[in-house]
């Protein structure tokens, strides 16, 4: 079984509002899966269905090949977007309580908490109340509680919100390490740069429907338009630009370079090989930059959403 999670045609309606419409998602084992979509698209509903907080009206969910059951709760770690802790409870007690709710024994929970608290260097918080901590500090505790029971599936909804860049990086590294240790991660966020950095698979949900799913590399291949960014040096730049404009589909490019050069984006027809362009260019100018324009996840996101409006 290479897929850890399979959601098959899940639908959910609240009164007249359809929150999810026949959404199927497949999350491969050991992947970091980005669940993307605008606000109110239905991501949270899908995540809640996976967490058995909400039951789908129709459709099935399989975890590691088995239909989702209540004992699977301990196999999932969920960090919701709307998250908090008991304000007047001590950090240590609270973490113990939440860990025990996930089925850990008190002893086990204590040992593991000690490990994580030492790792994050926050052991001295144990007897503090949450209301004495900053938001970022509380988020660290929440992160620990989410991963403490070593779940197979980790679901993070906007995990980096509330963290400063340094701590966001710490958390990012921890997520990657957990993946390397065998966990599968579902990652819901609006921050496309972290999707770009972390995710190997994505699914895009828009207006209760899934409109895109797959490996990030496959999706990028499908969305790339045979466009190249070039930087050229020539004695007669104006002349060169004119020639290129006549021959190819060009537009001005914008990238940073040390010296004065002609910056262009050149789109080729599908059947034209990049080498043809390159040899055309080398004949006429010094090529100092030549690279394929690969669409960012952000561009794909915006493009797909606007196409589906």
């Amino acid at each position: 079984m290479s897929n850890l999670l399979e959601v098959q045609e899940a639908s959910k309606r609240f009164g007249d509002f359809i929150a999810l419409n026949n959404v199927s998602v497949t999350v491969p084992k050991g992947s970091i899966f980005g669940l993307l979509g605008p606000n109110g698209a239905g991501k949270t509903t899908l995540i809640r269905i996976i967490n058995q907080i909400t039951l789908p009206d129709t459709g099935k969910v399989f975890l590691d090949g088995d239909p989702l059951q209540s004992h699977h709760i301990k196999d999932i770690g969920y960090l919701p977007e709307e998250r908090g802790l008991y304000k007047s409870m001590k950090v240590g007690e609270q973490a113990l309580y939440l860990a025990q709710l996930k089925g850990l024994s008190k002893k086990e929970a204590k040992e593991r908490l000690k490990y994580w608290f030492d790792k994050f260097d926050i052991s001295h918080w144990w007897n503090k109340k949450i209301q004495e901590l900053s938001k970022g500090m509380a988020q660290k505790v929440q992160f620990i509680v989410t991963v403490l029971h070593r779940p197979k599936l980790l679901i993070f909804d906007e995990p980096f919100s509330g963290f400063d860049p340094i701590n966001a990086n710490v958390i990012k590294d921890e997520i990657l390490q957990l993946r390397d240790e065998g966990a599968t991660v579902i990652f819901s966020t609006h921050r496309m740069e972290s999707v770009e950095e972390l995710c190997d698979h994505i699914a895009l949900i828009h207006k209760s429907n899934k409109i895109l799913e797959g490996k990030v590399s496959d999706i990028k291949k499908a969305y790339k338009s045979n466009t190249f960014e070039v930087g050229l040096l020539s004695d007669n730049m104006l002349e060169l630009e004119k020639t290129l404009q006549n021959k190819f589909n060009t537009e001005p490019a914008n990238f940073k370079a040390i010296d004065e050069q002609l910056k262009l984006k050149i789109s080729l027809d599908k059947q034209v090989a990049p080498n043809e362009l390159l040899s055309f260019l080398t004949e006429r100018a010094q090529v100092v930059r030549f690279n394929e324009v690969i669409p960012s996840v952000n561009e794909i996101f915006i493009k797909t959403i606007t196409e589906n409006e």
Binding site: N51, I53, S70, I73, I76, Y78, L79, P80, E82, R83, G84, L85, Y86, K87, L98, L101, K102, Q142, V145
Partner: peptide
């Protein structure tokens, strides 16, 4: 209400019914 305003509720009910 406290659990709602503290936003701990979703963390809790991902563990218990």
């Amino acid at each position: 209400i406290e659990e709602k305003t503290n936003r701990i509720i979703e963390i809790i009910i991902s563990s218990v019914k």
